[in-house]
Design a protein around this nucleic acid. Sequence first.
DNA 1: GAAATTTTTTCAAACGTTTGCATTCAATAT
DNA 2: ATATTGAATGCAAACGTTTGAAAAAATTTC
Lengths: 343, 343
Amino acid sequence: MNSSRPVTIKDIARRFRCSPSTVSRALNDHPAINEDTRKNIQEYAKEVGYQRNEVSLSLLNKKTATLGVVVPTISNYYETAVIEGLHTALQPLGYTLNICVTNENYLLEKEYLSKLLSNRAEGIFLSVSQETYDSGYYEHLESVIQRKTPLIFIDREYEDFETSRATVDDYHGAFAAVEHLINIGYKQIAHLKGPNGLTVSEQRFKGYVDCLKKYDMPVREELIINTNFKVESAIVPTKRLLEMVSPPDAIFGVNDQVAIGAMRVVKDKNLKIPQDVGLVGFDNSPISAYTFPSLTTVSRPGRKIGMEASRLFINQINGSGDFSHESIVLPSELVIRESSLRI
Amino acid sequence: MNSSRPVTIKDIARRFRCSPSTVSRALNDHPAINEDTRKNIQEYAKEVGYQRNEVSLSLLNKKTATLGVVVPTISNYYETAVIEGLHTALQPLGYTLNICVTNENYLLEKEYLSKLLSNRAEGIFLSVSQETYDSGYYEHLESVIQRKTPLIFIDREYEDFETSRATVDDYHGAFAAVEHLINIGYKQIAHLKGPNGLTVSEQRFKGYVDCLKKYDMPVREELIINTNFKVESAIVPTKRLLEMVSPPDAIFGVNDQVAIGAMRVVKDKNLKIPQDVGLVGFDNSPISAYTFPSLTTVSRPGRKIGMEASRLFINQINGSGDFSHESIVLPSELVIRESSLRI
DNA sequence: GAAATTTTTTCAAACGTTTGCATTCAATAT
DNA sequence: ATATTGAATGCAAACGTTTGAAAAAATTTC
């Protein structure tokens, strides 16, 4: 009762006293099938709700039309934009995306990759978890490489692997953001940094440092504080910054969430944005345009990254074996709004 | 060269001049296999990176351990929380989640469901798209029912189907929000409504209306304006509200995004929150605690919904055929913050 | 009416794995 | 030496579908 076995080709064959081959051909409009036979079979199939078992086909053809998307989180605007881009590009080609969320956890990442290989995914898009990045264990990727399953790195890359990758130019985005603050006239620019070790954090940090250096401004260690990307992780650090004897007059947040957290603290201290404190974020999340004041930020083309990554994948499966891998770096763009426009 | 065929059990069998059965049993630690044979085979398998082809197993056992999650979007906090809840509950049981994003599109939803059935998903969690809801076409669900694939509705339910469902009590959440505004002393409460037709929108709307009625306050048509849940869709409506001859002194937004959009407009008009205008949202998204002023809102237990939905699924597959379906309604909870606390 | 041709259908193998049952082989008991 | 046991392995079928080649059936040609 519980599980009514799905109708198979054999069931239909029995019903028409013909062979499964005939049914298969009839359903696929094979020309060598009698017109009447075809019509009868197709009608009956529709009537009983026949649906091709793709699992058996996958086995036969060794094609699953499934791609793995392994990401640390889907709770941010950026990540969902990337997935949307992948989806937009790959869904029309008949691919199914298998989205796996690792929660920055190494073991889960490993398990998902293994599972994807077992399920014969035809390609994997990977943004490595923070734990993986920290630990430096990349053995779990070896089996993907060994199996020659196309592996496309998204964003968080690992330099030692021979793979394609699509990343955003975080460095120059951060550089432009800080340069903008300097041009406006801010003198003491703090940075709410992301977790150590992640490319994203470090590149933005580097852009921050290099820009200060270019303009002969001191890099004050005490103005650089870590966060974990989340809005609440900016609260205590920002308070610490503002209570210094020589507090910063501008804050560059590693992302919009952090910048919005900082915004809240600045306002609680009755300081004016951008007059007393300038503020810049990163991501250009939808909300950033509607905070008060609106947030200057750096836009990351998440959707585009997804589409470019798809392109890299397609290139790879169409290319020959000695295909040399591609690295795509998309520019990020400064979006100037009220939070930094001191006049 | 491109595709190095994965190692199969047959390959290993050939290497050891034994039968595939022996290899299979050796790999699965079957007791009837000689100790040495087992060790040799297992070692070799590891060495060449053998990985069980789950596709063939799926075919054999008619079990795919795959569940479909069909949602309109993953760009909101709430949806990702639900997915996280599903994930938390089902990943440990060995299930793989196949997340499908319909973008509120009927045809895509239909295609995904068909694909999930073809791929023999063992269950489907569905939050129907807006188009589906609007059109009232539910034929594409019939095949899911017919195949007796467990179907769990999440949030956006369709009353006519005999299925399990897990929803949040939007009605009472909205009621409580409006009641709170009334208790504080607000007299003219506007509502930025969600898209027509969606349960979520309509339930909150109903809660709003019924609460006004309970307190003998007039329901003014012109104070009810539609949005599409997105922050930018609140801008024009809020402007319209505030420029009325008799403007509202409080706004109840269908979600936090919309409320935050309204917050921006109110501030642009140099009106004070909560003194001149009270504001309440819905969702309790992380950012709502850190806006300035912080946003009073109604929390929806997304993670819990995901976990409850998982439970319903598990119940259903363990239950007998004449299993009567369950409806779970989780309470939503008013979270009072600064944006409504006029003293 | 038989041969040649065309149309339609069936056979069998394949994809990778598991598993009940049968078989083989060696060791032990009689 | 023969029967009995026990351990280790192999056989074959099954899951659902496709497809080249062979076979069967129907039609045409002379």
